[in-house]
Design a binder for these strands. Structure first.
Lengths: 229, 229
DNA sequence: ACAGGAATATGATATTTATCAGGTTTTACG
DNA sequence: CGTAAAACCTGATAAATATCATATTCCTGT
């Protein structure tokens, strides 16, 4: 592994930036880099993790399987995010599965370096805490959306979320391409309903599509829909 | 305020137990105790908090108002829990409103004592972090339940949750008495649907009622329902 | 290039859930 | 104690959503 954490820009986006030089060196010496192909799992619900994964490239879905066989996507993690943190911090098995939704490159950081720094460097611990506080707020928002918005509104939100977090290509299509099934698992609805609503939005001129690619054609209309107009 | 944090048993249940004697003394000197009557607010969504609230007695609902005027209850906090922590840690305004659902006694702890300890005592910070990690896991579970279980299943879960977290009285009724409206706001459904399902569960012998009080009569049946049988 | 499978799409229908409209019971309080 | 308001309940209906069935299109591996 030639690349060192000390030189990794990704680090600026996550809690690792609060580590001291020495701590970072230790982490860098122990880390390993892995390439994960689209569709491959990083870890599965219920496993014990020996460390965390820092996303260098690509996007992972974090989801939870339910009794009826569907899985709900709780979060999409991309460049700069650290996944598996909650599990390592709480010393519990992971509550979510992580699967790559695009080709990925991640660094695996064994938990020892993380845990010892948590015990000794309050700046680092506080930084991790702040990130978790942010995640918790987002989770609260998702709960409220799930229970108070209808499927169309949640679909509209999902597309705006994808635009704001993963961007668009030159032609105005969402950069992150998800299958209809993944979209329905984000929104929490049946695949057929998801597809139907995409068709409807297309007819109304809110969206455009090209194969699997989806683009936002009328952001204002989507926003109005979310607000209930 | 005669009572001191150092002697408060409540402390054992939350992150304050990781504070040193001196830190705890500072907190105790700056804290104030407040009595909050059922129905009264502790804080409202969007406010800036100058500290956290440690629950000594009673239960508070943490909820978020949505565009359509309903509010979704995200969490019920009781004895020993610290509320407002997320906001203080992230240095953001609170994302939830807190209202007492029973008469309460809470200690208000100004944030200065908390924040300075967060910066200097990694054990305390880690303890807070662990609590937040736990809350985040619970929030993830709620998201999955919301999106994958139907209203009846969520109702059944809510009653079991109330039993497990707040207990039953001598006659087997749930100790925490919530209005039908509060129950519907926990479950994320219309009041009428909530009431209808309570009636149905009563007819089927899953629940018993006495005025506003609700008791679980057939826990196994409720569990089966949740599992989808 | 093409066969086969997966993903996408759409219609018909069933089920779930919300909404509206009216009741009854309980509670708060002058 | 009595009255008004709030909370609770029930029925009828409408709306939202899931499910089932069946095309169609797209992609993958040989």
């Amino acid at each position: 592994m030639e690349s060192r954490c000390e030189n990794c820009i990704i680090r600026q986006f996550n809690s690792l930036r609060a580590m001291s030089k020495e701590e970072l060196k230790r982490v860098s010496d122990s880390k390993t880099t892995r390439v994960i192909k689209k569709g491959e799992p990083i870890f599965k619900e219920g496993e014990k993790l020996d460390g965390v994964f820092c996303v260098r490239e690509g996007v992972s879905k974090l989801s939870k399987l339910s009794a009826n066989g569907k899985d709900q996507i709780v979060k999409l993690a991309s460049k700069g995010e650290v996944i598996g943190q909650r599990s390592v911090v709480a010393e519990e098995s992971v509550n979510l599965s992580a699967v790559a939704v695009s080709d990925m490159e991640v660094c695996f950081i064994p938990k020892e370096g993380i845990v010892s720094t948590l015990h000794t460097n309050p700046n680092f611990t506080l930084e991790v805490l702040r990130h978790m506080a942010h995640d918790l707020k987002e989770a609260d928002d998702v709960i409220v959306n799930m229970s108070q918005k209808n499927v169309k509104q949640r679909m509209a939100e999902a597309f705006l979320y994808l635009k704001n977090n993963f961007g668009e290509d030159e032609e105005g299509f969402l950069r992150l391409v998800l299958s209809r099934e993944d979209i329905s698992n984000v929104v929490g609805t049946a695949i057929e309903s998801c597809i139907r609503i995409i068709s409807e939005f297309k007819k109304k001129g809110y969206l455009k599509t090209s194969g699997k690619k989806i683009g936002i054609a009328d952001e204002k209309a989507l926003n109005n829909l979310i607000e209930g107009f």
